[in-house]
């Protein structure tokens, strides 16, 4: 099983969770997964929207105590 890379973007207003994911993906191999931690509920929508648009895979989203965990697999 591939180890997940955690991108802790809690409390990040700028650049924000999606920008942190975009930067993080550049340092990952194809097939690797990233779990973005975000305190911005907007991440539950905007991360999957971008991931779909660009051609990566949205594995899942769940919320625990005000923190959204959005998991993404790098596809290209």
């Amino acid at each position: 099983m591939t180890e997940k890379r955690v991108i802790d973007a809690r409390g990040s207003f700028c650049p924000g969770p999606l920008m942190e994911l975009i930067a993080g993906l550049k340092m990952m191999q194809v097939g690797e997964e990233a779990e973005v931690l975000s305190t911005d509920k907007g991440s539950a929508n905007d991360i999957p929207e971008w991931v779909k648009k660009v051609g990566h895979a949205h594995i899942g989203t769940n919320e625990e105590s005000g923190v959204w965990h959005v998991t993404v697999r790098k596809m290209k």
Binding site: F13, C14, P15, G16, L18, M19, I22, D46, E49, W50
Partner: peptide, 8 residues
Amino acid sequence: PIGRVHSL
């Protein structure tokens, strides 16, 4: 890069 004209 993201869905609005600035990250903030």
